[in-house]
C-alpha cells in the first residue's frame, strides 16, 4: 500500500495505482480531466496532457519534487507522494494552455455536431478553458470519410487521442485503421480505402471523446439532450447485452454502451445490438440512466433548474459586464436550445 496526498487529501492505495486512479478514489473536483485515457484500454493515456499534475514530493524515500508536470494517468504513485492539482495556479495555467492547444484547430462546430451535449472536449473547455481564442490562422481541414456503412469519420474534430486505434487493437479483430502522417497533419485513417467492418467496431464511436467518429444511423436525428437515456439489456451471444437506449418519445434513436461517471464505457457491445436492435421489444428495460458528467443532458432531465441557474449565474459573473447580461425569456425552458 502507498499513501498519496492530492490537494491535501490523503488516500491509501495499492502499489502500482496511478495518480489519476488515486484521485478518482478520492473523487470530487480534484480528479484531473482526461481525454485520451480510458481505463479499459491498455496503454491508453499520456497523449493529450490534460491530466497533468504537479508532484511536489516524489516519495517518502526520495522527497525531491518532479521537475516537470507529469501525466497523472500514466504515473504510478509512490509512498508519501504529494500531488497538487487544483491547488497549483501554475498547473491550472498549464492545463488551460493544453486546452487551448486542443482547440486551436478544432472546428468548434458544436451547433451541428452530434456529439454536442455529451462531448468530453466541450466539458473540458467549459471547465478548464478560456473564453476567447488567440489563434488567428485558418484551421486545418480534412475531408469527411465513411469508414464502413455505419461509422463516419470527421477528422477536423479529432484530437488524436488514439482511443479508437487502441479499441480496434484490443477489442476487435484485424484492425485496419491507424494514424498516418505526423505532426499537425497526422490523421486517423484506414489502410488504403478499407472499410472498418467487424462485430465490435461500433465501440470506437463510444470511446471517441469528440464528434470525430459518429454513428451514421443516428446522425442528425436529434440533439442528445432531447433524448432520454434508459439502461436496458438483452440476451446476446456476442456481447454482454448491457446497453443504453436513447429514446425520443417512443422511438429508440440510438443504442450505445453504458458509460461510468468518468465517461468511460463499462461494457463493450456488439454491432448487432448497436445498429440493428432499435425496437423497445428487443430489450428488457431496467430504468432511466443517471448521467452526471454531461451538463446538458443532466440539466434537462435530472437536475433541478435551481442548480442550472446557479451555474449560469457563475458563468455570467466571470464575463466582463456579465451582470448586465440578461437571459432571454424561456432560457431555462428545457425545450429551448
Amino acid at each position: 500500500m502507498a499513501k498519496v496526498t492530492i490537494d491535501g487529501i490523503s488516500v491509501e492505495v495499492p502499489d502500482g495505482t496511478t495518480i489519476l486512479q488515486a484521485a478518482r478514489m478520492i473523487g470530487g473536483d480534484i480528479v484531473p480531466p482526461t481525454m485520451c485515457y480510458h481505463s479499459k484500454l491498455k496503454t491508453s493515456g499520456g497523449y493529450c496532457r490534460t491530466c497533468i499534475v504537479k508532484v511536489t514530493k516524489g516519495s517518502e524515500k526520495d522527497p525531491r519534487p518532479m521537475p516537470k508536470p507529469v501525466a497523472s494517468c500514466r504515473t504510478t504513485v509512490m509512498d508519501g507522494m504529494e500531488v497538487q492539482n487544483l491547488t497549483s495556479p501554475d498547473l491550472l495555467e498549464a492545463r488551460a494552455g493544453v486546452v487551448e492547444f486542443l482547440l486551436i484547430n478544432h472546428p468548434l462546430d458544436c451547433p451541428v455536431c452530434d456529439q454536442a451535449g455529451e462531448c468530453d472536449l466541450q466539458n473540458l473547455a467549459y471547465e478548464n478553458g478560456k473564453a476567447g481564442t488567440r489563434y488567428e490562422f485558418p484551421r486545418r481541414e480534412f475531408e469527411r470519410i465513411d469508414i464502413g456503412d455505419k461509422i463516419q469519420l470527421h477528422m477536423n474534430r479529432c484530437i488524436l487521442c488514439y482511443r479508437c486505434v487502441k479499441t480496434a487493437d484490443q477489442v476487435t479483430d484485424g484492425r485496419v485503421h491507424g494514424v498516418i502522417n505526423r505532426g499537425d497533419v497526422a490523421e486517423i485513417s484506414t489502410y488504403i480505402t478499407n472499410a472498418i467492418d467487424n462485430d465490435f467496431s461500433g465501440n470506437m464511436i463510444d470511446v471517441c471523446p469528440v464528434g470525430a467518429l459518429t454513428d451514421k444511423t443516428f446522425r442528425f436525428k436529434s440533439r442528445v439532450w432531447y433524448t432520454k437515456p434508459m439502461d436496458a439489456h438483452c440476451k446476446c451471444t456476442k456481447c454482454s447485452g448491457k446497453v443504453r437506449l436513447w429514446y425520443k418519445g417512443e422511438e429508440v434513436l440510438r443504442v450505445t454502451g453504458r458509460r461510468d461517471q468518468f465517461g468511460e464505457v463499462t461494457d463493450w457491445i456488439c454491432n448487432e445490438c448497436r445498429f440493428e436492435k432499435k425496437k423497445t421489444s428487443d430489450w428488457t428495460i431496467e430504468g432511466p440512466a443517471h448521467i452526471d458528467r454531461d451538463s446538458v443532458i443532466s440539466a434537462n432531465h435530472y437536475e433541478s433548474l435551481k442548480a442550472l441557474k446557479a451555474d449560469i449565474d457563475r458563468q455570467r459573473k466571470a464575463l466582463p459586464h456579465g451582470d448586465k447580461v440578461t437571459l432571454g425569456h424561456g432560457a431555462l425552458d428545457p425545450n429551448n436550445q
Binding site: 499520456g46 497523449y47 493529450c48 496532457r49 490534460t50 494552455g97 493544453v98 492547444f101 486542443l102 486551436i104 484547430n105 489563434y135 490562422f137 484530437i159 488524436l160 488514439y162 494514424v179 502522417n181 505526423r182 505532426g183 499537425d184 497533419v185 497526422a186
Partner: peptide
C-alpha cells in the same frame, strides 16, 4: 520542429505549427 513533430501529444503537435505561423 513543426515539420518533425510526431503529433502524439497535443502541446507539441499544435504549438509548433502555431509558432511557425
Amino acid at each position: 520542429y513543426h515539420h518533425e513533430s510526431c503529433g502524439q501529444c497535443s502541446p507539441c503537435r499544435e504549438g509548433t505549427g502555431w509558432m511557425e505561423k
